Computed example of a mutant assay.
Amino acid sequence: MTKKLRIIGLACLLYCSSIGLLWAQQMMFADSSRLGRPFSKDPHVVKFEGRFLMYFSIPPVPDQPGGWGIGIAESSDLIHWEKIGTVAAAEEYEKNGFCAPGALVKDGKVHLFYQTYGNGSKDAICHAYSTDGIHFTRNATNPIFAPKASNWSNGRAIDAEVYAFKDHYFLYFATRDPQGEIQMQGVAEAPLNTDFSRDDWTLAKNESILKPELGWEGKCVEGASIIERKGKLYMFYAGSYNNAPQQIGVAVSEDGINWRRVFDQPFLPNGKEGEWNSSESGHPHIFEDKETGKTYLFYQGNNDHGHTWWLSNVEVKWKKGKPRLKN
């Protein structure tokens, strides 16, 4: 081997080693079982019975009946994940697909909130619960929530996030304007003693609580994820439609209903050209590990305009009441 070839070989080895080290330190997860290529979206994480469980959307199987579904993975360190199950369609309202999971742990059960999919403006929020985090029993009143069609909403509800704050559970959802063009956030509420059934939910505000206004938000604000810090709620949300690029912003509220933006620019932007998330950094989930006190922002991304989708996370620090990305 010539000296020049040895130098090239050493450079390649160092490059590959550095990439391998990066991926070993950074969470990079995607399920390939349905398409034969990495494709997972909409991450949501809970800690249940000593392990981390992540629920995420998985795409339809080509040339087979059914639609989107929900996958389940587990981890002990929030970096390395293994798929352990799938939430299979069980009811007529799920036959066209269901996805975009949100979850919480209450009374020793995992409560899963998800949307029906493939029904246009009729898509709505559903609820199920599980004693093991894998096998779920549906709420008999499903779908549990969708707003009535009105002068601000076409009646669709997707991207559920349910969060307890003060004397209510708030259900944050995305809907569209009557023309079906602008995606925006709404919120419903239920009492703390709710079993999450349909009759417990009412609109907390009969209008959008956050809609696209900034240039980078395009025509879409969706995927709200909520965390409480020092008596205030912070909403991490996705701005703009997928691969536009979609990027992540932050808003804050004292009452869970009225919101203002913390930043005018994306908190987590899409990556630079050549990076794994150059097409977008989207659909956030903010997760706090109560044992360590650390906060992590989970999100989806890709660099091929949606041919593949990966899930990752980044640690979030808090300074003077505002979140910042860990350096």
Score class of each variant (00 low, 15 high):
133 G>D: 06
134 I>T: 12
135 H>A: 12
142 N>A: 04
145 F>C: 08
146 A>V: 02
147 P>I: 10
148 K>T: 13
151 N>S: 15
153 S>D: 07
154 N>S: 11
155 G>Y: 01
156 R>C: 11
157 A>W: 09
158 I>W: 02
159 D>V: 02
159 D>K: 06
160 A>R: 00
163 Y>R: 09
163 Y>G: 08
165 F>K: 07
167 D>F: 06
168 H>L: 03
170 F>H: 15
172 Y>Q: 05
172 Y>R: 03
174 A>R: 13
179 Q>L: 12
184 M>K: 15
184 M>C: 13
184 M>F: 10
185 Q>P: 00
185 Q>C: 08
186 G>E: 08
190 A>C: 01
193 N>W: 02
193 N>L: 01
196 F>K: 09
196 F>Q: 11
196 F>C: 10
197 S>P: 05
200 D>Q: 12
202 T>K: 14
203 L>Q: 13
206 N>S: 13
207 E>I: 00
209 I>A: 07
210 L>Y: 03
210 L>F: 12
213 E>H: 03
215 G>S: 12
216 W>S: 01
217 E>V: 12
219 K>R: 12
220 C>R: 09
220 C>G: 00
222 E>D: 14
222 E>R: 11
224 A>D: 08
225 S>N: 11
226 I>G: 09
230 K>V: 10
230 K>I: 03
234 Y>K: 04
235 M>I: 06
236 F>I: 10
239 G>S: 07
243 N>E: 03
245 P>L: 00
245 P>T: 03
245 P>K: 01
247 Q>W: 01
247 Q>V: 05
247 Q>A: 06
251 A>M: 01
251 A>S: 13
252 V>E: 15
253 S>N: 09
255 D>Y: 09
256 G>F: 10
257 I>Y: 05
257 I>Q: 04
257 I>N: 06
257 I>A: 07
257 I>L: 09
258 N>G: 02
258 N>F: 04
259 W>F: 13
261 R>D: 04
261 R>Q: 04
263 F>K: 08
268 L>C: 06
268 L>E: 04
270 N>S: 14
274 G>L: 07
